[in-house]
Write a protein that binds this DNA or RNA. Structure first.
Lengths: 236, 236
DNA sequence: AAGTGGTCTAGACCACGGC
DNA sequence: CCGTGGTCTAGACCACTTC
């Protein structure tokens, strides 16, 4: 079972709820480190930790000598989220269509990305993602078959893959390394996403890792560039 | 003048030098938190801080209960670097060509991105970036003219813009928020980058901020997708 | 002058991996 | 069993902003 939630996580969600519940606008200030520490009965370093995470996610903005403030708009930078989570955080209903769901044995390039022995069986899942009834992405996922027995029976047309992995298989995800580039839609992708051949596609290849840094899933996302932008934050 | 370098920064660069000097390979372990603390005469939290930053940059990988190790490749994830820094970190010579360098008054969309009053004067700088004599990117920068008097006289064909901003104007950069999408090369870009019209282009629009979170520079980068990939890391 | 975030200390306990 | 990273404490000083 899961261990107890760390204090800094509780504070983190508490601050986020404070923002949404009180309807704080960008620029409004949130409690200072010292206030949070007192409020939650923790030490200063712990309160700081919570704010540091929120800053990296783009929820909050810190100004030295001045305070901590609600950040500009609402994109969660650099945060690994599922399509389902992303949609519901924007108040939209997720909607997908399962195109492929089978076990494969012969894609050795991806086997290598997942650090598996050559010839290993993998589950391959292809889904089309919709935003308000318009298809905007084709996502192809690969997972080691040995670690996810019965995965294909989980109604992946309607269930969140992240949810199944984390809750039904008890795996904690930690981070993803991603390669981003641009391509043109080939015939198949164009047909699936209702585009013309050659339309610009934003391609994102992720290696998602579990808590012990083992690769757990390889995902190729092909996003219709007109309907999707990626937001990131980089620090100096 | 500049203040003293924080201890965690010193440890950070010390670890990086250790890796390059000893030629450590991915998977080799670096000193543990406790070792680093003893080595540099700092407390455990400070040594941890250094490793946390290195982990976010993708230099180092931590495995709970096991240790800290040199990370897989050597791309510096999520780190705001200049073209010049990126090239020299790969042992390549930077090479650019200045296309445009002038003061403009009439691009109000960008004026808004920089939080300036409407009609403000901005410096506009366009440069082509080369990788081993092949053009691979067109970068267009906008800066508030009032804050950078004499910027255009700084030999921007050869000098690093980041260097000039940080050292000659004494500004500390903190982070950049970026929008990434895919497009097709228009006629001008195609000509400048020796591509055919319609080739896939990875476009990155950055708002770079100084230490007090004021926008300092707006950059539109258009990268030839065949010759450039973006690496990022996202955390759960 | 009061308050803020940034840095730092010198300890502590925990859960787990590898020996 | 020992060493590891992850979490946490209860303080401290600094440089600076805002009032």
């Amino acid at each position: 079972m899961s261990t107890t939630v760390p204090a800094y996580r509780r504070i983190q969600t508490a601050v986020q709820q404070l923002i949404t519940r009180k309807g704080l606008k960008p620029g409004d200030n949130v409690p200072s480190e010292r206030e949070l520490a007192k409020l939650h009965g923790v030490s200063l370093m712990t309160a700081r930790h919570a704010l540091t995470v929120l800053e990296h996610e783009g929820v909050v903005e810190r100004r030295r000598y001045a305070g901590t403030f609600v950040a500009q708009p609402r994109i969660h930078f650099n945060k690994l989220t599922s399509y389902t989570e992303e949609m519901s955080s924007r108040g939209l209903a997720p909607h997908s269509r399962l195109i492929t769901g089978k076990v494969i044995y012969n894609e050795d390039e991806i086997v290598a990305q997942l650090n598996l022995p050559p010839g290993s069986a993998m589950v391959k899942i292809e889904r089309i993602r919709y935003a308000s009834d318009e298809p905007f992405a084709l996502e192809t996922c690969y997972l080691p078959n040995a670690e996810f027995p019965g995965l294909l029976a989980k109604h992946l047309g309607t269930n969140s893959l992240f949810f199944v992995i984390e809750n039904e298989f008890g795996i904690t995800l930690s981070y993803a390394d991603e390669e981003v580039d641009a391509t043109a839609a080939d015939e198949r992708v164009a047909a699936l996403l209702s585009l013309s051949c050659g339309s610009p596609i934003l391609r994102i290849c992720q290696v998602i890792r579990s808590s012990n840094n083992r690769p757990i899933m390889y995902v190729i996302g092909q996003y219709c560039a007109q309907r999707h932008t990626l937001f990131i934050r980089r620090f100096r």
